[in-house]
């Protein structure tokens, strides 16, 4: 199977993630979009691992670590979102901007 197909899929996922980050103003949705980008990287790592026949499985290991870290970060991120909501009852990025420049 041509590896380029997979890579184009991951590029698409990455680009959609970028779109989400730029176009969304809800913090949780931005967060989800970033998860898309992380998954794009993961797919790359795994398919490259297969393509290159890495004996060290570095590609898969990398993907594992990305998943783990992403989970940890999400925990912190949601804690921050909850905190903000408690104080202000909103999770929209635009409305949260007290400070500019």
């Amino acid at each position: 199977m041509p590896v380029a197909w997979v890579l184009i899929l991951s590029s698409f996922l990455f680009s959609v993630g970028i779109y989400g980050v730029l176009a969304r103003r809800n913090a949780v949705l931005v967060l989800m979009s970033i998860e898309l980008m992380l998954n794009a990287a993961n797919i790359n790592f795994v398919v490259f691992n297969l393509l290159l026949h890495s004996i060290s499985y570095i590609g898969q290991v990398f993907a594992l670590f990305i998943i783990t870290i992403a989970a940890a970060e999400l925990g912190v991120g949601l804690a921050i979102v909850i905190l903000i909501f408690r104080n202000r009852s909103t999770v929209s990025i635009d409305e949260v901007s007290l400070m500019k420049w």
């Binding site: 890579l7 991951s10 990455f14 980008m37 992380l38 794009a40 990287a41 993961n42 790359n44 790592f45 490259f48 393509l51 290159l52 570095i58 590609g59 990398f62 990305i66």
Partner: peptide, 9 residues
């Protein structure tokens, strides 16, 4: 990470 994955590739 996306960049790193390409470098690995």
């Amino acid at each position: 990470l996306f960049g790193m994955s390409l470098i690995y590739g």
